[in-house]
Every structure is written in structure tokens, then in C-alpha cells.
């Protein structure tokens, strides 16, 4: 019972993801021209971006916490949330490319949304390169926290404002209807919302495992 109290959210994540995969692939979806069955990508592609943004936001929150407190523990959280966010971002871009291949006709069609997300990934890859260039733990933590916050602030206009200023093929941008316009009977919503929560919890789970590993490594190093 004790265990269930502590780990209920992991059980929830597993259940929600089972539901997402089964219902997302088997339940009725609106039949639409061109989109056809690819509309099911909604449950897998979109939650990746939501998950990425939420995880990166958590990473920034921990970067701020580190700068305020100077405790290395917070830095470990910031790195691992950024790591998990990066994985979600890569999955998001790959799932998006497959979807674009069947609906827009090409894997990469120079869409502003695609370009901007590629750049957002570059920013966080640069973050890891920056981390690699320090020897001292505290120095690394402080400087990379500064870059983390700076890059996140610069990324917000990149992902939210710019694609809206230009024409885009992406649903929900440049005059294209978002998926909520197709979802007349709320069937998609019934899978989509649980999917968002499930994938995000999975990301948290990843990150928490990696954080624990890092903290254990830190402890071992201290004891040596």
C-alpha cells in the first residue's frame, strides 16, 4: 500500500498509455479527405510537443532554483528534464515528419513550424555541448543554468510568435483549421487529453529515474 501511494502516478502513466495506444489506433476517428487515418497521429505527435514544452519549462524552473540556492541537486534536475524534453522534441519532429510525408507529400517542406522546431532542438543540443566544455561541477551548473534560462526566453518567440506571423501548412496556423475543428463529436478529445497526460507522466518518469541515478553517482563520488 505504501508503495502504491508513492508510485500511483507511474501506474496512471502506464494505464493511460495503454489506453492511448489501443483506443488511439482502434476507436472511430473522423473520416476526412487527405487526412484519412493519419488523423490518429494527433494522439502521438501533438503530446510530444506539449510534453517537450512542459519538461523544458520544468528544466528552466530548476535552473532558476539552482541559481537561487547553489545546490547541485537542482542542477541535476535541470539537466535531466532538459534531456527528457530533448527526447520528446526529437520524437515530435520525427512523428511530424512521417505525418507530413503522407499529408503534405514531403518529409520536410520548409514549413515555418518545422524549421522553428528544428532550431529549438539545436538550442538544447548546444546546451549539452556547453555543459561538456567545463571541468568544474559548480561552474558548469551555473553557466549552463544561465544559458538554459536565456535560451528558453529566446525560444518562446521562436515557437509561438513567428509561425503565426507567416503562412504555414501546419494545422492551427496560417488560417488552417486546428484539429479541434474536425473533432465534431469529441471522440478525438476522449483519447487526446489522456494521451497528453500519459506521455507527460512518462517523461517525468524517465527524468526521475535519471535524476536518481545521477544523485547516487554523486554520492558514490563523494564517498570515494
Amino acid at each position: 500500500m505504501e508503495k502504491l501511494k508513492k508510485h500511483w502516478w507511474k501506474v496512471l502513466a502506464a494505464l493511460l498509455l495503454f489506453y492511448t495506444v489501443i483506443a488511439g489506433l482502434l476507436m472511430d476517428a473522423p473520416r476526412l479527405h487527405i487526412l484519412n487515418e493519419t488523423i490518429r497521429a494527433l494522439h502521438f505527435h501533438v503530446p510530444m510537443w506539449f510534453g517537450m514544452l512542459a519538461l523544458l519549462l520544468l528544466s528552466v524552473v530548476y535552473a532558476v532554483k539552482y541559481l537561487r540556492s547553489g545546490e547541485l541537486r537542482h542542477d541535476r534536475y535541470a539537466v535531466e528534464f532538459a534531456n527528457a524534453g530533448l527526447i520528446f522534441g526529437i520524437l515530435g519532429i520525427v512523428t511530424g515528419m512521417f505525418w507530413a510525408h503522407y499529408t503534405w507529400g514531403k518529409f520536410w517542406s520548409f514549413d515555418p513550424k518545422q524549421n522553428m522546431s528544428a532550431i529549438a532542438l539545436l538550442i538544447y543540443l548546444a546546451y549539452f555541448v556547453l555543459r561538456g566544455s567545463f571541468e568544474d561541477d559548480h561552474q558548469r551548473a551555473r553557466i549552463s543554468s544561465v544559458y538554459n534560462i536565456f535560451a528558453f526566453a529566446a525560444m518562446v518567440p521562436l515557437l509561438f510568435i513567428l509561425p503565426r506571423l507567416t503562412s504555414s501548412l501546419h494545422p492551427g496556423n496560417g488560417g488552417n483549421p486546428g484539429f479541434n475543428a474536425y473533432d465534431l463529436d469529441s471522440n478525438l478529445r476522449m483519447v487526446f487529453y489522456p494521451a497528453v497526460i500519459g506521455w507527460f507522466l512518462l517523461g517525468l518518469w524517465f527524468a526521475s529515474l535519471r535524476v536518481r541515478l545521477r544523485l547516487v553517482q554523486d554520492k558514490l563520488e563523494d564517498n570515494l
Binding site: 532550431i119 529549438a120 539545436l122 538550442i123 548546444a126 555541448v129 556547453l130 566544455s133 567545463f134 553557466i143 544559458y147 536565456f150 535560451a151 529566446a154 518567440p157 521562436l158 510568435i161 513567428l162
Partner: peptide
């Protein structure tokens, strides 16, 4: 980070794109 000019470009370019 030791004034590495590669690092300057890698960190700066994605941020300057918008």
C-alpha cells in the same frame, strides 16, 4: 567556457535566428 569560438557560434546561431 574558455573562449571557444566554435562554442560561440553553436550557442549563438540558434538563438539569433528569430
Amino acid at each position: 567556457a574558455g573562449n571557444n569560438s566554435t562554442l560561440m557560434a553553436v550557442l549563438g546561431f540558434p538563438v539569433i535566428v528569430p
